[in-house]
Computed example of a mutant assay.
Amino acid sequence: MVEKDKKEILLSVKNLKKYFLVEKNQYLKAVDDISFDIYKGETLGLVGESGCGKSTCGRTILRIYNPTAGTIEFEGKSVHSLKGKNLKEFNRRAQMIFQDPYASLNPRMLVSNIVAEGIDIHNLSHGDERKKRIDDLLELVGLNREHANRFPHEFSGGQRQRIGIARALAVDPDFIVCDEPISALDVSVQAQVVNLLQELQTKYGLTFLFIAHDLSMVKYISDRVAVMYLGSMSEIAKSDELYKKPLHPYTEALLSSIPLPDPIIEKTRQRIVLEGDVPSPINPPNGCKFVDRCNKAMDICRENRPKMVEIEPEHFVACHLYDK
């Protein structure tokens, strides 16, 4: 956890846009003008419905995609203007754990070569030192050093995800984008992987962008949570604050869908059911993107896009209900 008086911004995203050309003069607006900061040593959870742009945001931050507009700064330096040695250093310090633990691993490579790929690219160790580094990484993520001489198909989904984590840790990163790292795993294995990530964060001072749609797990692992809807940011707040007092109607609906372990409370609580379909990201509404599904919509919501404003300390929301 990050203490309030020790916060230092590691990554700053400002007015980020990522559009994909679909047809002539038609663009899919996957990420549409979002801004947020990530502090050193914290976990920022990024949640929202499938297709809202979470993964595209994470991939754009790591230069897998080039942004259409906006800036991404890592320790005050623009990520997408880095070149040469500076770019290579950023690629070492910022890593990604991918959603599919099988598709992200080369099936023709031994685990030892998969884990050591970054070590070799960045020339971090050789010979016996390289082998020891691989063995130590495998044991660090709960595998055996004998697993180094096997292929990915010989492992379970949870084990493959651990290999992906070992690969990300191999180059001593400072920042890791976790792109739905547990969505393809069994529930029992999900808890193991999340606990492993927390242990590694405490041990190495890592910073995470944790992308997921499992709201219960996001609350458990995150210091702060950011909510996305159709490429735009709806709300950002501390984890406990967001779950206790959601401000945006979309956030309220999302949180009302979380199953509760107490059947009596589950039966009596009021569930918010969203009506209508998610608008097309190719042709979203001119005003608030949530306007067609919101039961609190006003005329201004159809005319103007709401801006992100701070309603309470460190609690930001983009909704005309809170216009001053």
Rank of each mutant, 00 (worst) to 15 (best):
F155A: 11
N91A: 15
L143F: 14
R167Y: 10
D172C: 09
I163T: 05
H122M: 02
P173Q: 14
R130F: 02
N123I: 05
N91G: 07
Q159E: 15
F151L: 13
D135L: 14
A170I: 03
Q99K: 04
A148W: 00
G142Q: 01
A94E: 02
E117P: 04
L140A: 09
M96D: 04
M96W: 03
G118C: 07
I119E: 00
P107R: 09
N149D: 07
G158R: 09
D172P: 13
L124I: 11
E129L: 10
H153N: 12
L138I: 12
A170M: 13
R108D: 08
N123F: 09
G164V: 05
E117H: 10
P152H: 03
D100H: 02
Q99M: 10
H126Q: 15
G118P: 02
N113K: 10
P107W: 00
V115L: 03
G157Q: 04
Q99N: 06
G164M: 08
G157E: 02
G127L: 07
R145D: 04
P107A: 09
H153Y: 12
A103D: 01
R145Y: 00
D100P: 11
R93L: 11
R93G: 05
N113F: 05
N144Q: 09
H122C: 00
E117R: 01
G142R: 01
D128P: 15
L105K: 07
G158A: 14
I134W: 05
L143D: 01
R160F: 02
G127P: 13
R167Q: 13
G127E: 02
D128F: 08
H153Q: 04
D120A: 07
A103N: 07
E129T: 07
Q99Y: 10
S112N: 08
K131P: 03
N113H: 12
G164I: 08
P107C: 12
N91F: 03
E129S: 11
V115W: 01
Q95N: 01
S104L: 11
E154K: 12
E129I: 15
Q159W: 10
P101T: 13
G164W: 06
L169G: 10
Y102V: 14
N144P: 06
P152V: 04
K132E: 01
I165M: 13
G158M: 14
R162T: 07
